[in-house]
């Protein structure tokens, strides 16, 4: 059953509709929400939503609970390859919790929060942006880690990044839902404007595993990998200092040593290498720049260091 959970009239003969699909079977009221499409240039979640929905449809008797799929929180954005809400240039993930009596964006956000609240677990799928490729990972703020970690480790991601809480992130959907007691996991994977089938399959296994653990799924499921957790590790940021075209020579997922050559920034006009890019620390490249044109400051890579003093397992 699909339904419209929020709607707003646009100027000329059209409504903006945010839709969800509910799949329900059995006695249990355990509810999993799969949410994506907050940023219109992130599409990995679109395929994941399809995979999860169609697999459950084909094996509907195995379901004991409620799965709500919200594929497009920012439908106009996806439709027009706009990261934010078109017309406003507003990042929707800075508008939560919104307000019933607020502006259009605030009203939509408030309706979204109302609708998802009460889910047992919510999975909010992002895919970086068009500039960076990310290894499948779950991000959470330190204060929420104790509650979320037991669920995050079921999700078949490679990496769980526990970061410091920042005031500005209080305006995200995940922060709002977590504050209201709906456990929300933020997944980042792949790259903007593309679908990485391999990652969608990986996350699909994670979603099914989580459903099994929540007692919502009676069917067979695949086993999941044990993620690296960032606790006790540092993340090294490699930013460009020059402007030009970034050409990596290290691969995504490589383990590197501090000082290793990981790429070049070149100038197509002068034919010069303007910056030799080196790893700032030992560790695993879990973020790598995908979009070649760079300015000073453009993020080129993120490297997860091994546990200080200890061996990587």
């Amino acid at each position: 059953m699909t339904e419209t959970i929020a709607s707003a009239a646009l100027a000329v003969h059209e409504n903006l509709n945010i839709q969800k699909r509910r799949i329900q079977k059995g006695e249990k009221k355990t509810r999993l929400s799969l949410v994506t499409g907050t940023h219109g240039d992130e599409l990995e979640g679109q395929y994941l939503a399809y995979m999860v929905g169609s697999f459950i449809d084909q094996n509907i008797d195995m379901l004991d609970g409620i799965v709500d799929i919200y594929p497009a929180l920012n439908p106009m954005g996806i439709d027009s390859i706009t990261r934010g809400i078109p017309m406003f240039d507003l990042d929707m993930n800075r508008v939560f919790p919104g307000s019933k009596n607020g502006t259009m964006a605030e009203m939509l956000c408030a309706s979204i929060v109302d609708d998802i609240s009460g889910s047992d677990v919510c999975i909010d799928v992002h895919s970086s942006n068009i500039f960076l490729k990310e290894i499948p990972q779950i991000r959470m703020s330190a204060p929420t880690a104790q509650t979320l970690l037991p669920y995050a480790i079921l999700m078949n991601v490679d990496f769980i990044w526990i970061h410091d809480a920042a005031t500005v992130l209080e305006s995200t959907l995940a922060h709002t839902l977590n504050t209201r007691g709906t456990k929300t996991l933020v997944v980042e994977m792949g790259v903007g404007m593309r679908i990485t089938k391999e990652y969608c399959r990986q996350l699909f296994d994670g979603v099914m595993y989580l459903m099994k653990e929540l007692g919502m799924w009676k069917g067979e499921i695949a086993s999941v990998r044990e993620p690296i957790v960032s606790e006790g590790r540092e993340v090294g940021f490699v930013n460009s200092d020059a402007a030009g075209i970034f050409v990596p020579c290290a691969n995504f997922g490589d383990t590197v040593k501090k000082g290793d050559h990981i790429g070049d920034v070149v100038d197509p006009l002068t034919s010069e290498v303007v910056e030799k890019v080196k790893a700032v620390c030992d560790g695993l490249i879990f973020t790598l720049r995908e979009y070649p044109v760079v300015y000073g400051g453009s993020l080129l890579a993120r490297i997860l260091q091994p546990v200080s003093g200890g061996e990587d397992k």
Binding site: V168, V293, Y295, G296, G297
Partner: peptide, 22 residues
Amino acid sequence: TMDNTDINRMFPGYVQGETTQR
């Protein structure tokens, strides 16, 4: 121009950060 970020959402800034943070 490039990443559509808002300079007035980047303060106090970060010298080793992204372009608009710089």
